[in-house]
Simulated scan of single mutants.
Amino acid sequence: MQTLEGLNKIMNSSRNFADYRETLHVVNPPCVPFLGVYLTDLTFIEDGNSNYLKKSRHLINFSKRMKTAEVIREIQQYQSVPYHLKPVQELQVFLKHNLAESRDVHDMYEMSLSMEPREREDEKIARLLQESGFL
């Protein structure tokens, strides 16, 4: 429970994931950062900044490009140091065996649809309205 509480504190979305970002900046690469934070940053940069300067529709907004480049540069820093992983034979055998024994993706999808058929868009809207108390 303490570990879970600590992780919940670090991954709290308040202040734009400030605790997570702080923790991530003290970690030495290599690591695999949570890309959702960076994708959100890139979305806000894209949606919140025009491609051209307001005073002239012919001048590119380089500030927007620099912000985007900074986010990408931060992601790349975690890819700059390679992992020094050693193969674990037992794990490789387990994975190969289970992958060989697994069913075809298309068969699994058909089984999924038979167990839980896809809902038409109008049926989904009606169900959501009913669940929310509007109908």
Rank of each mutant, 00 (worst) to 15 (best):
K96Y: 03
H106M: 14
Y78C: 08
H97G: 05
Q92R: 13
F94Q: 10
D104C: 07
N98C: 12
Y78W: 03
V71Q: 10
Q77W: 01
N61Q: 06
F94V: 12
V93N: 08
Q89P: 01
Y78R: 03
K96S: 04
H84V: 02
S80C: 02
M66F: 13
K67G: 05
Y78M: 10
Q79N: 05
R57E: 12
Y109K: 02
L85G: 10
V88K: 03
K96R: 07
L95W: 06
Y109E: 05
V105K: 09
H58K: 15
E74H: 07
P82S: 01
Q76C: 07
Q76F: 09
H84P: 09
F62I: 14
I60H: 10
K96C: 07
I60P: 00
K67R: 06
Q79P: 00
K64C: 00
I75N: 01
A69P: 01
K55P: 03
S56F: 00
Q76D: 07
L85F: 15
I60G: 09
L95M: 11
V88R: 06
H97V: 05
V81C: 12
L85D: 15
A69L: 10
T68R: 03
E90R: 10
I72R: 04
R57N: 13
Q76H: 08
S102W: 04
M108V: 15
V81P: 02
S56T: 01
Q89I: 12
R57M: 12
A100F: 12
R73C: 04
Q79R: 11
A100H: 00
E74A: 02
Y109L: 11
P82E: 08
E74M: 03
F62V: 10
S56W: 02
M66T: 10
Y109H: 13
R103F: 01
V71L: 03
L99I: 06
R73N: 09
L91V: 12
L59E: 11
Q92E: 11
V105W: 04
A69D: 06
S80L: 10
H84A: 01
R65N: 14
K54N: 15
V88E: 05
Q77D: 04
K55E: 07
N98W: 10
V88Y: 07
H84N: 09
P87I: 13
F62T: 09
R57K: 15
V93Q: 09
Q76L: 09
H97I: 04
R57W: 04
P87H: 14
V81K: 11
T68A: 07
H106Q: 06
S63T: 14
F94M: 09
K55D: 14
H97R: 15
V93A: 02
N98I: 14
V71C: 00
Y109W: 06
E74P: 01
M108Y: 11
T68Y: 05
V71M: 06
D107N: 09
F62H: 15
I72A: 05
H106Y: 11
